[in-house]
Write a protein that binds this DNA or RNA. Structure first.
Length: 379
DNA sequence: ATGTGC
């Protein structure tokens, strides 16, 4: 079971974090505000809970209607993990980092073919397919740190690739269209409800195709092949028999293995969600470490000098960080995130998941400046 | 988060 629910006439709020886990009061307040809204049935807060723009991040919300705000502006955002057919010992980190820079450039392959192969309708945002995007998105080359459960076939020697990205302009346009209409809850069985779910499902499938293409580009850049391990979305909504289930920064516990990434300076974990987890967790688990500090405060925390930036371009394992956007380099510093070990410990303590394997980052690719260096000029 | 903006 989770902690005793917060109950006072509102929908029950079940939380799955210990008293030792850093949770901002503002995030708990947002959770309680959600629970007080009409038509909300149950709310589940995960150990990576933190405040968000349209509501708390790191939670699952069961409601009678669709709340586009709970899905947020990046429907379909999620993680995909692949095993590369190259052993880590054969990789030179600096060479790999140089090669991986290329994947942040626009994809110059057959985008229309990729869209068709994924069974997607063309959209106005397809030119971004296969690219990482901004914010907390990344593509990471990893080494296996430890395999706790050998039954899933994780090979200790192989390098892995983890893609964290979403639906780019597609999901953004979807939320913008809802804001125009007043951002109110929608009956899933109404015509607008069906239209939202249709556009949402399209964004989720686009985001999935995006992650697969990012990983394929990474493998191609490293001259190797990639074998699929797992993938899921942590920003999405699902019309189920028991209601409308929203996951905002929450990974599904009913769709196989899940990667719960730490910051770019910490381990990431492959976990097996447990089928006998408490129902109050709403078929969900944490989606990552969760932010500890807001973006704006990070320059003051990690410094903004040249040597500060140089430190941020390495990780504590001797790996590399490719991020040519100075502000982003600082905003997404490892210090901005909670320690992942606590999040994993909570998932295990509350019976939500167990660890299969852990990974350490070798190269994290984020923004790369384009030819004209425009992203740097803005700063 | 954002085909990220005058």
């Amino acid at each position: 079971m989770g902690n005793p629910p917060i109950v006072d006439g509102r929908a029950p709020v079940h939380t799955f974090y210990s008293s030792k886990t850093w949770i901002e009061g503002a995030a708990v307040h947002q959770l309680e505000q959600v629970a007080a809204m009409p038509g909300i049935r149950t709310v589940a807060g995960m150990p990576d809970l933190h405040p968000g723009k349209y509501g708390p991040v790191g939670c699952a919300i069961l409601a009678d209607r669709i709340h586009p705000a709970f899905v947020g502006s990046d429907a379909g955002c999620g993680m995909a993990l692949f095993a590369l057919d190259v052993p880590v010992r054969k990789l030179r980190i600096d060479k790999a980092a140089e090669r991986l820079r290329d994947i942040e450039r626009p994809f110059d392959g057959d985008i229309r073919g990729e869209i068709e192969a994924a069974g997607l309708e063309p959209s106005a945002f397809d030119s971004a397919l296969g690219t990482i995007g901004g914010g907390n998105h990344f593509c990471e080359l990893l080494a296996v740190e430890d395999v706790v459960d050998t039954s899933f076939g994780i090979d200790r020697s192989r390098a892995h690739v983890l893609a964290h990205s979403g639906s780019r302009g597609l999901g953004h346009a979807l939320l913008e269209s809802q804001i125009t209409e007043g951002l109110h809850p929608i009956d899933p069985d109404s015509e607008p409800g069906r239209a939202y779910l249709h556009a949402h499902d399209h964004a989720v499938r686009w985001a999935t195709a995006n992650r697969l293409l990012i990983a394929a580009r990474a493998a191609q850049a490293l001259r190797c092949d990639a074998d699929f391990v797992c993938q899921c979305s942590h920003n999405c909504v699902e019309h189920r028999a028991d209601g409308v289930l929203h996951r905002k920064g929450a990974a599904p516990s009913d769709q196989g293995l899940v990667v719960v990434p730490g910051s770019r300076g910490a381990l990431s974990y492959l976990v097996e969600p447990l089928s006998d987890a408490p129902l109050e967790a709403l078929a969900s688990i944490a989606h990552g470490a969760g932010r500890k500090y807001d973006r704006a405060s990070m320059a003051g925390r990690v410094g903004a000098t040249k040597s500060d930036r140089e430190r941020l371009m390495r990780n504590p394992f001797g790996g590399r960080v490719i991020c040519e956007d100075r502000a982003l380099l600082v905003e997404e510093a490892p210090e901005a995130y909670k320690p992942i070990a606590g999040v994993i410990a909570d998932l295990e303590a509350f019976g939500l998941a167990r660890v299969v394997a852990s990974f350490r980052p070798l190269v994290t690719v984020k923004r790369v400046a384009d030819e004209r260096g425009r992203r740097e000029e803005r700063r």
